[in-house]
Computed example of a mutant assay.
Amino acid sequence: MKINKKYERITFAFLMALCMSAIISFFMVLVNTGFQLELLGTWLATWGMAFFIAFPAACVLPKQIGKIMRKISFIENK
């Protein structure tokens, strides 16, 4: 399946947010609760909440961070 070029940015943000929120929420649940019978259910619930925050952030933050980086980066004119 090929993604149209105009949807590349949003698809990247979606997949990045999906993966990052899954990994981080899993390890945070594991650290806070340890291995337990309810680990999978607890993780899936927290992953849903984490993704709800991560996806909009992944869509908005790159532009804002890019602006900040252009201001603080020194680029030498050649």
Rank of each mutant, 00 (worst) to 15 (best):
M1K: 01
M1S: 05
K2V: 11
K2G: 11
K2Q: 11
K2P: 05
K2R: 07
K2D: 03
K2S: 13
N4T: 01
N4D: 14
N4Y: 04
K5G: 08
Y7K: 06
E8F: 05
E8K: 12
E8H: 12
I10S: 15
I10P: 03
I10M: 09
T11G: 06
A13P: 00
F14S: 11
M16W: 05
M16A: 13
M16Y: 07
M16I: 04
M16H: 13
L18S: 09
L18A: 14
L18I: 01
S21A: 09
S21K: 07
A22M: 11
A22R: 06
I24W: 05
I24A: 02
S25T: 08
F26W: 04
F26N: 09
F26A: 04
F26Q: 04
F26M: 01
F26C: 13
F26Y: 15
F27P: 06
M28P: 00
M28G: 02
M28E: 08
V29I: 15
V29T: 09
L30R: 00
L30G: 01
V31C: 04
V31I: 09
V31R: 08
V31P: 02
V31L: 06
N32G: 09
N32E: 02
N32F: 02
T33N: 14
F35Y: 11
F35I: 15
Q36A: 11
L37Q: 10
L37Y: 12
E38K: 06
L39M: 10
L40D: 08
L40H: 03
L40V: 11
L40T: 15
L40A: 08
G41L: 05
G41W: 07
T42Y: 11
T42W: 10
W43G: 00
L44P: 04
L44V: 07
A45K: 13
T46A: 00
T46C: 08
W47Q: 02
W47E: 04
G48L: 02
G48D: 03
G48F: 06
G48V: 06
G48E: 03
F51H: 08
F51A: 10
F52W: 01
F52Q: 12
F52A: 10
I53D: 13
A54Y: 07
A54C: 07
A54N: 00
A54V: 07
A54H: 00
F55R: 06
F55K: 09
F55Q: 03
P56A: 04
P56D: 05
A57Q: 03
A57G: 09
A57R: 02
A57S: 07
A58D: 02
A58H: 01
A58Y: 12
C59F: 12
V60R: 01
V60Y: 08
L61F: 10
L61T: 06
P62M: 09
P62F: 02
K63I: 15
K63H: 06
Q64H: 09
Q64K: 06
I65G: 11
I65F: 06
G66Y: 10
G66L: 14
K67N: 14
K67G: 05
K67T: 04
M69Q: 12
M69H: 03
R70Q: 13
R70T: 14
K71E: 08
K71P: 00
K71T: 11
I72M: 12
I72D: 05
I72P: 04
I72V: 05
S73V: 02
F74L: 15
F74G: 10
F74P: 00
I75Y: 13
E76S: 15
E76W: 13
E76T: 13
N77E: 14
N77K: 08
K78D: 15
K78F: 13
K78M: 10
